[in-house]
Nucleic acid binder design. Structure first.
Lengths: 371, 371
DNA sequence: TTGTATGCGTTATCAT
DNA sequence: ATGATAACGCATACAA
């Protein structure tokens, strides 16, 4: 037998109202109730009103479990991220939740803690929960991708974001890092810099490789030589930025601009420049990458690249919804590369103020958006 | 009729395996399968092994929807937060997800966007989803709490965190702000400060009122006078911190310590002190509140109060699980106040280094933990 | 120890 | 336009 209806443990507790209850009360069938509530075409407007009114009166809440079980699909999307901290992932999740809830979906969130095993378990859980689709950003320890085949095997829509499985047979959304490096460097060129250094990250990571490539692209386009002595590699920490700046300033001809592939690194560089009595941006212009929160509170604030976290989440959801709607019909996998956004701030803005106009108002948070 | 089994849209797609499938294959009843999988006592070890093996072979995934529908309770917890951004909420959510998943629950996350209407809708959705319990941090526009009665009416466990409904008939977890103010001020006293100013926040907000009270408590305990000229009120923004510091330094007898009720405010104060050529912490010691990310990257790093975001999430989950396990039996509501943690950093640490010992190692991230 | 039968709440099919 | 009924997958009371 079914478990006895959960009784009111105390008299204040009410048990939920079901369609059957409404049907009984109105003396009609459950079918009619269901149709009225889901706005089926073959339902009399009078009847529909009666049902809706009663539903409201009893504060009827559809049981989504039952509905999903019957239909074989829930209104839930699964998210798997390495963790929910820092600036990046929370913002992406924010974007995802916002877009999903607008489309009538809710999200169930899982952390892999950078652990493949946990990532695998998360996928199993999400499959169990009968989610309608899954959004994944890979854990750092994920080198083998077979567990995702299980998802594909189920025909379940799957979209990667940021940390993706490479290849053109997956659906994925990433930031265009190369464009970011390019735009940053072009900006420094536009500010009059002619000797631009690059504080680069580990080149086995795609993001850093691409940012460096964008930097080189801009230099080449401007007809400037590629000078390896101006490219310093590190892990992008604050003190490594300082150390890098120290080395650059010790060169026979120090640079007049520095493109750092990360904000912490840029911060270290900025602080070191100040320590050496240089003015930023007049003596050396600096730009970073990622739009970390602190970049607006330094003096001067640091020019940087926004990674469009929210847009990434939204784009990922859009793609996932397309897949869901395709409902198993052939769908050509797509990789989306988001345009990074350059935020010009004090650390690099050294052109004379333009003739009065709102865009160059110094109080404006940022100027210059890549279209 | 049921919808035809979702057919393989292409030949690579497999439909999920159900208990019935396993039962058929083994020539036993579904009951046996169910019992074997849920480790029921009345099941033969031999049979159990057979079932488990087959389940693995077919990669059986229980359908949690069906299970939850049958049992009337899902393994889902609902979270309602104003938004998932900044430092605080993501960290709390991190703590919640971690604790929940350890206990075998998954979380479905909703944002209210500081909007009561949205908050109400979120609650309805979570009720619809048959979650086992709900965790809420109130939206800023929530002044009327009737929508939570609906949850209580359903007998559904409910725990508030951080932004809570005041009263002793609710379950809630908050940070002990008064203790935070007290500990910060005591620390400044211990550093030799004798004239301690307070950059206070809007006093209609409990958090700021309590932080101020803690400050006063510490002063009184130390036998120092309460001096209103040393308390400046603002909205706690960076530039207001700078302005506050300016005013304080213009006093006939400027303070030798400043307890700011927020980190941005403390940062502004720090920058202003530097502008005026003062040394921090030698001339004036400064401490903030919230352990914002940037507090470790300033020079000197800023002493602050950690709000124990993760612990808050974990504590909230623990409380919620207790409620769930109580299963409707009488439960005396509980309010938990978390101990804030003082992080002593360069902006206030001006005692001579103690005789060599790991605790005073300058490379240590923080020193001095409130037990 | 195992099997039979039923119901959780919803929706889809078929009939009226 | 409305109703009767079965089925989604699982778990349990009861019988054997």
């Amino acid at each position: 037998m079914a478990p006895r209806k959960k009784q009111a443990p105390d008299s204040t507790t009410t048990s939920p109202v079901s369609m059957a209850d409404l049907a009984r009360e109105l003396g009609v069938s459950m079918t009619t109730i269901s149709r009225a509530l889901s706005d089926h075409h073959s339902i009399g407007p009078a009847m529909k009103q009666k049902v809706l009114k009663l539903a409201k009166k009893y504060n009827y809440q559809p049981n989504r479990l039952a509905s999903a079980l019957r239909k074989g699909k829930s209104q839930l999307l699964g998210i798997v991220v390495p963790y929910i901290e820092g600036r990046f992932f929370p913002s992406v999740v924010h974007g995802i939740e916002t877009a999903a809830s607008r489309a009538g979906y809710n999200v169930i969130i899982c952390q892999s803690n950078e652990d493949v095993a946990q990532e695998r378990r998360n996928l199993d859980i999400l499959l169990s929960a009968q989610v309608a689709g899954i959004l994944v950003s890979l854990s750092r320890t994920t080198l083998d991708f077979r567990h995702f085949e299980k998802v594909r095997g189920r025909g379940l829509p799957l979209v990667f974001f940021d940390r993706i499985v490479e290849g053109d047979n997956v659906n994925a959304v990433v930031l265009d890092d190369q464009e970011g490096g390019y735009v940053s460097t072009r900006h420094l060129l536009n500010q009059g810099c002619r000797r631009i250094a690059h504080l680069a990250g580990p080149q086995h990571l795609n993001i850093y490789k691409n940012r460096r490539q964008g930097y080189l692209d801009a230099l080449r386009e401007a007809g400037l030589p590629e000078d390896e002595s101006l490219i310093l590699y590190s892990d992008m920490a604050q003190d490594q930025g300082a150390e890098g700046m120290r080395q650059l300033l010790a060169l026979p001809t120090p640079p007049d601009g520095v493109f750092a592939a990360g904000d912490y690194c840029a911060l270290g560089a900025l602080q070191e420049a100040h320590r050496q009595g240089l003015r930023v941006p007049e003596d050396v212009a600096i730009s970073g990458f990622s739009n970390e929160t602190f970049t607006v509170i330094t003096q001067p604030p640091i020019t940087t690249i926004d990674q469009r976290c929210e847009e990434m989440g939204q784009a990922a959801v859009r793609l996932l919804l397309e897949l869901i709607e395709a409902d198993g019909r052939p769908f050509t996998p797509r990789q989306v590369a988001l345009r990074p956004e350059l935020l010009v701030r004090g650390s690099s803005d050294r052109l004379p103020p333009a003739p009065a106009g709102p865009l160059r108002d110094p109080s404006a948070k940022f100027i210059g958006t890549v279209a």
